[in-house]
Design a binder for these strands. Structure first.
Length: 497
RNA sequence: GGCCCGUUCGUCUAGCGGUUUAGGACAUCGCCCUCUCAAGGCGGAGAUCACCGGUUCGAAUCCGGUACGGGCUACCA
């Protein structure tokens, strides 16, 4: 959606509260903000909304920053990088809020309220009792003479500060890039609190003061904020600041269409990172959950996201997180990697993490061959070590899968196959121990033995890896090495008929 | 209670009044490839576009209502 009133350079922001880890919903909001900024040559601001001191922690802030970095969402202004609109932590902006609130009071756009919480609750109950459609604040203290209010404040009477919704405001029209124009009636809005009695600003106030001060032009956030937006518009107007364009994006739900929570599995970004997902794939998947450039593309690299992302392709309805599709996309990114890169960035770190191989156990070429063999068989990074684990077992400790043994080893002819393999492979020396040579050596065996290929190769496979599945027999044995191969085949003969 | 939002294959979506016998992707099923498992290739099934009315020559697309789901209505964010 374009707006001729908003042709200033794009400035967007992601403003998480450090009350927990960065969850997938927040991550997607961050991705959209980032992509929108990049696609429009704008500025992406990161601000930490830590006005709730009881729930905000420094540790959570660090966790969020780390998650943002892992996601590759670089911010132009914010923690650690600074910027001319700082500070970027709300707890460091308290003076700004106080000043703004006092200015609003002085200008008659806000007023002191001396109602106690008990009084407010009683008023609300009474309204409910009467069946009033409006159950908000009755604007009791609006009528108090400003001079008197000032005196009571000076005398130390507990008070809050409320915004004054103009009597004749009429419709508040929210311009929303994904929902279009959303109309609210100002009469339904109450004079909500902008400053608590403990001297701290409320979210709806602090956010607007900051967004206005930081020149934010587009506010992309979760649609749980849509209903609060007209209230915030009132604050913008009281402040005399231009209202930005909003874009309220839907929630991400679990498989049962309920709010995503622990029982749906992983909910935080770092859990996905630790589970072996690639940052690129994760960003790709999340971006597509509610946004589609054309309805055809599934694999959309972040460069394309940064080029093409647009708010008018963002869908309005909630999206259910589908781990299967995430897996598919992750596999796509993994498979698209070069063998060298897969070896260095995925295989070696995973082998090291699994305690199997610190990278010094084989030659460079071996790891590349392992990548060729295992890469197409991996969906997650963490699959790599699981795929290769049998290569690292001691020959006499290799565990034989019961079903595979029964099906392929403890069978008539299996022993013949193993004997023939020993003979054929014995012809090869270490120097010629390559996938091609191994396959060439084993290739004539089925015909010689008068047996099917499976009858010959499967016993060899089970003998060497312990199970019925592995990469091609040539690659598998090449990776195992001549000595281990022959030793394992020898050992398996004891299990064969 | 009031206000607001949403509703296209199981899932993510395309669709912005005729080009639609509603397209793609994941998942699923089948076939091919094949020494196994993957990967890859090909194909199938799968959506009366929540429901009911209206506008129109013509509606998934526009309007109204209903249902269901969600949000806000806090001295939470």
């Amino acid at each position: 959606m374009s707006d001729t009133n908003h042709n200033a350079p794009v400035r967007v922001r992601f403003a998480p509260s450090p009350t927990g880890k960065l969850h997938v919903g927040g991550a997607r909001t961050a991705i959209y903000n980032w992509a929108f900024a990049r696609a429009n040559g704008g500025t992406f601001v990161l601000r930490i909304d830590d006005t709730d001191p009881t729930r905000s922690t420094e540790e959570n802030t660090q966790v969020i920053l780390r998650a943002m970095r892992w996601l590759g969402l670089d911010w132009d202004e914010g923690p650690e990088v600074g910027g001319e609109f700082g500070p970027y932590f709300q707890t460091k902006r308290m003076d700004i809020y106080r000043e703004a609130a006092e200015r609003l009071v002085a200008e008659g756009n806000a007023y002191y309220c001396f109602c106690s919480p008990e009084q407010l609750a009683a008023d609300r109950d009474a309204a409910k009792e009467r069946g009033d459609s409006f159950q908000g604040y009755q604007r009791t203290c609006r009528a108090i003479d400003p001079k008197e209010a000032q005196a009571r404040v000076a005398a130390g009477e507990p008070h809050t500060i409320r915004i004054k919704v103009p009597e004749d405001r009429g419709d508040v029209v929210v311009r929303d890039a994904v929902h279009g124009k959303v109309v609210f009636n100002a009469r339904d809005l109450d004079d909500f609190i902008i400053f608590r009695s403990d001297g701290t600003p409320t979210y709806n106030f602090a956010t607007v003061v900051d967004d206005a001060a930081m020149g934010i032009t587009h506010i992309i956030r979760g649609d749980d904020h849509l209903s609060n937006t007209p209230r915030q518009v009132i604050v913008y107007e009281a402040l005399g600041a231009p209202t930005p364009i909003f874009a309220h994006i839907s929630m991400i739900l679990g498989s049962d269409s309920k709010k995503l929570s622990k029982r749906h599995g992983a909910t935080s970004v770092e859990e996905y990172r630790d589970a072996g997902y690639l940052s690129d794939a994760f960003v790709n998947y999340l971006a597509l959950l509610g946004w589609a450039p054309d309805g055809e593309s599934t694999v959309i690299p972040r460069e394309r996201l940064a080029r093409e992302f647009s708010l008018d392709h963002v869908s309005k309805n909630p999206a259910i997180m589908d781990p299967k599709k995430l897996d598919f996309i992750n596999g796509e990114y993994l498979h698209a990697m070069s063998d060298e890169r897969f070896a260095h960035d995925i295989l070696l770190p995973q082998l090291a993490a699994a305690g199997l191989d610190d990278g010094s156990m084989h030659e460079e070429g071996w790891y590349r061959l392992a990548s060729v063999a295992f890469k197409p068989r991996c969906t997650l990074s963490s699959d790599a070590a699981a795929q290769a684990h049998y290569l690292y077992a001691a020959d006499d400790e290799l565990v034989y899968d019961e079903k595979a043994t029964k099906r392929w080893l403890a069978k008539q002819g299996a022993r013949d196959a193993l004997e023939a393999a020993t003979a054929a492979l014995g012809q090869l020396d270490d120097a010629s121990w390559t996938p091609a040579a191994i396959e060439a050596a084993l290739d004539p065996l089925p015909e010689q033995l008068g047996m099917g290929k499976g009858k010959v190769f499967q016993p060899i496979r089970v003998a060497c890896v312990g199970g019925a599945a592995s990469p091609g027999i040539g690659e598998t044995l090449a990776l195992l090495g001549r000595t281990h191969t022959l030793a394992r085949i020898e050992r398996a003969k004891g299990l064969a008929l």
